[in-house]
């Protein structure tokens, strides 16, 4: 197969498997935050702000996978 075909397969795999881990992690983080807010509603502001920042950190990993996929598709260093 050509480099292009392998790049497309690689991009698909990167997004597929790169999305699984962050999805599970974000689910866990949101679960924990909801439990904490249910238990202590007065701390909701601090918890949700921390949650947002933490979600951004987790999400960055999925975004890296997306960027790798896009580099493979649009800016592949091995295709001229």
């Amino acid at each position: 197969m050509s480099v292009q075909a392998w790049s497309i397969i690689g991009a698909v795999l990167a997004v597929c498997f790169g999305a699984i881990g962050p999805a599970l992690a974000e689910g866990r983080a949101i679960t924990a935050a909801m439990e904490a807010i249910a238990r202590q509603p007065e701390a909701g502001g601090t918890i949700s702000r921390t949650l947002f920042v933490g979600l951004a950190m987790i999400e960055a990993i999925a975004i890296y996978c997306l960027v790798i996929a896009l580099v493979l598709l649009f800016a592949n260093p091995f295709v001229h």
Partner: peptide
């Protein structure tokens, strides 16, 4: 780098 990529990735995707 993460700050740059997070914003780019979200909006572009």
């Amino acid at each position: 780098f993460a700050l740059m990529m997070r914003l780019l990735g979200n909006i572009m995707s």
